[in-house]
Design a binder for these strands. Sequence first.
RNA 1: GGAGACGUGUCCGAGUGGCUUAAGGAGCACGCUUGGAAAGCGUGUAUGCGGCAACGUAUCUAGGGUUCAAAUCCCUACGUCUCCGCCA
Length: 425
Amino acid sequence: MLDLKFIRENAEKVRIAVKNKNEKADVDAILELDEKKRKLQFEFDNLRAEQNKISQQIPTLKKKGEDVSGILAKMKNVSVEVKSISSKLTEISENLEQLLLTVPNIPHADVPIGNDESDNVFVREWGKKTEFAFDSKEHLELCEQNNLLDLKRATKLSGSGFVAFTHKGAMLERALINFMLDFHVRKHNYEEISLPILVNRKTMIGTGQLPKLADDMYHVEQDDLFLVPTAEVSVTNFYGGEILANDDLPKKFISYSPCFRREAGSYGQDTKGLQRIHQFNKVEMVRLVEPEKSYEILDEMVGEAEAILQALGLHYRVLTLATGDLSFASAKTYDLEVWAPASQKYLEVSSISNFMDFQSRRASLRYRDENGKVRFLHTLNGSGLATPRTFIALIEAYQNADGSIEIPEVLRPYLGGLDYFQNIL
RNA sequence: GGAGACGUGUCCGAGUGGCUUAAGGAGCACGCUUGGAAAGCGUGUAUGCGGCAACGUAUCUAGGGUUCAAAUCCCUACGUCUCCGCCA
């Protein structure tokens, strides 16, 4: 959420941001309601002041034995009017709040302006595309040969877009999760945290998934709870509504969670195998920091996510997202795309974003700075990493001519020392 | 799921209709005192909105209601605790 004052004073900037992000938000309606609200608030405050003042005098007058019936009758009218203004005020405030929730964050000045992902800008790459001296196999074939996945039976259980990791596949996935968690905890000093994956509406609004992405969320109607699409939601909202001490910052959390996405509107895209599924696992980095440091930390987090891919020895590239591909709440985002050498394409495995104070305002995440002033802090998050696509790139890159799969050194301790998967059919 | 108790500021805690713009205490900050520290004394110590400010206003879990007036009375929801039931 943007600061209402900021919108008031920078309406044009906000309009441009809405346009560049392909969003729909009615800035003029907001300005109009804001004006109305402040006027009404002024009226309300004055009337309440009068009511409070006279009500306080009543007991004294009574004690003196004066007749207060005239005052009571007059105050009865004031009371009616206070209630009427108050309910109007509540209505306007709620409408204004709803409109404010539809205004996206403003992209950072560095962010390339562009309509969609084709306008994303290449930043750098690491490693080389794997070249095979044999006919390489795509991940689905490798999974089948090594019995790592069972798509048919997962579909039987839950429908299309759900997968089952089987045998060594399940173990490899778990190895990836554990490796990533340990790596971030030990090398990057993250604090591990494990939170509910079923959260309420307020929590979803806090990080900006609601109201915009309601159709993309799984919703448990009976309890009005939502399955999180990323651990970002519960971790970022963890301190919601609180004022942290200056010493409490920065917060650095690493959290593993399953992620649930309905993927409404993306039918037909990347539906093959593990690329786009309704439920997947992800290790997420979340930071709560002082505003001045957030861009420095954004770069640091990109490096931390890259470190995982480097440790796994996988070629990847880093992109800066263009305005049109930037998420609703983000001011600036880098994507990490890993190379899947048999499928011959880059797969997005991490999105690292600075939300600045956008989520803080929604979730009311504040801290007291060294001068004792209460300020909104800045939030950032990034995948470190999502497992299914990492899994694809990994088995494709580490395949041998016979279809067996070598295990990268760093994962071996998580697989009981195993150094390769052999066709176990 | 059933029954009961409770929900006050950073924390503890008083407050059952009006001199409460929330007592008192703890903690914290600053000052006095001291050779230094402790103790003691004094002052200050929530957030939002409007205002240059003085100040006004809102917030005692949340939302409704009663009243000239609500932390206080009534209703609903949520949460916490205790007991019972069920259950990993």
